[in-house]
Design a protein around this nucleic acid. Sequence first.
DNA 1: CCGGGCCGATGACAAATGTCATGGCGATCC
DNA 2: GGATCGCCATGACATTTGTCATCGGCCCGG
Lengths: 202, 202
Amino acid sequence: MIRLVIADDQALVRGALAALLGLESDIEVVAEVGRGDEVSAAVVLNKADVALLDVEMPGLDGIAAAARLRTDAPDCRVLMVTTFGRPGYLRRAMQAGAGGFVVKDTPARQLADAVRKVAAGLRVVDPALAVESMTSGDSPLTERETEVLRAAGDGGTVADIAAATFLSEGTVRNYLSSGMGKTGARTRAEAVHIAEENGWLL
Amino acid sequence: MIRLVIADDQALVRGALAALLGLESDIEVVAEVGRGDEVSAAVVLNKADVALLDVEMPGLDGIAAAARLRTDAPDCRVLMVTTFGRPGYLRRAMQAGAGGFVVKDTPARQLADAVRKVAAGLRVVDPALAVESMTSGDSPLTERETEVLRAAGDGGTVADIAAATFLSEGTVRNYLSSGMGKTGARTRAEAVHIAEENGWLL
DNA sequence: CCGGGCCGATGACAAATGTCATGGCGATCC
DNA sequence: GGATCGCCATGACATTTGTCATCGGCCCGG
């Protein structure tokens, strides 16, 4: 019997996944949580074998939650599930110790299989996403560059970004410029878009 | 027995919802589709009583699909489900003839109730969303303004937007300017953000 | 029929943005 | 110890952007 914890911020999806996997005879859903920072406690309390984590979650994102499970509950395997097939997500999830990574538009039937394989210690990766992850490598952006690009995400002016990052306006423009150069963008907004698509903004 | 069609672009969520609702004794899931333009045919073929539609879908978005059901299958009730609580979505969905509107982070248990109520001809609306829909009214943007803002969404230059919309560069800047004025934004990117949040970009 | 709104465009101007060169500081690697 | 790289900053410069005034055409409601 595989003891499973489900973490997803959307209650409807969470419950639906629980219903779907609860139908399997060898899987038992022992807990459901809606926030990343509740995962660790739920896994430890229920002695879970596998944690099904969404990447997008409030409190603590799925990747950080997976990293924390690595120390809090080393025996618990992690299967990441995400809405968007950002290539960078896969890489970071694997680095964080995830045992599997599937996208939400994979056939429902394969999910139970993925859970079983992960529980057995195997690695499960969406094949289409794997090749993309190879081509689009690791983030070329430096730490401050990503920070500035993320701050630029909601469309504020340079002054806004400078205030948010505690940097000089000129420095902000320099980082924006270098970020645009590395992403091949011609506008800061385009750079933000490209970086987001690749999962470089975390 | 309520005959239900489920439409959602994410196969996993689709299957999970089917599993969840299939547990109810008075609900029968008769079809699942992943594209908006397949909804109509599925409903007609299976003589469905209720269609559960996601707003975000390829081919045809949920609102347009609901509008088409109004003519193709007038007896079929529509329950909209969405990830984002964009205030404008609710209004547009209701105008398109939807009988209910719930967000994906509502408790899973209430979904079956919502389906039953919609099937009975009642209106079901997420209460938190309803008040927001009242305060943030209809889109103040004109047709071209939304078109230009949407084209500006991926961060291109004025020249790019002009090329995409077949307008003069000066005209594009005028529409951007007026759009920014109506949204209270100080940057085109901010205007796009605000308009998106409110569901004004369709 | 006349006003008002949206559409498309032009021109001019101030402000913001993107680019480049340059400098100093610290860490890391050879 | 020198070389390299990232970080932070400044200043100058050309370009882009946002704003405003103005024009003509079109369609709709009073």
